[in-house]
Amino acid sequence: MRHLGVLARIDLSDEEVQRLTGQLDAIVDNIAKVSEVATPDVPATSHPIPLHNVFRPDVVGRMLSREEVLQNAPDAADGRFRVTAILGEEQ
């Protein structure tokens, strides 16, 4: 559960970890039944209505102004978003 919290970037409290663990166990027991019928011969459906080759012409369209880009920024400086020190590195 702690690991999931790290992956999901949620700082779960001990109480939350405890509560969620119990609830998740019950939910997972219930949803695990999908594997009963998901046999290898059944193809997966990722889109309910199958389409393909949906493209956009390479033509510049409306962009946001910098004011619009930054209008909800919790913090900004020099026309950019400002965040506190980063610990990890780029992927």
Partner: peptide, 26 residues
């Protein structure tokens, strides 16, 4: 760090049901 700020903000900003489903989906 920004990682701490993100995790803290998401913990405070999301309600129980949202956290439950995010954790389940993760």
């Amino acid at each position: 760090t920004v990682e701490d700020v993100m995790a803290r903000s998401r913990d405070v900003g999301f309600g129980d049901e949202v956290k439950r489903r995010i954790i389940l989906g993760t």
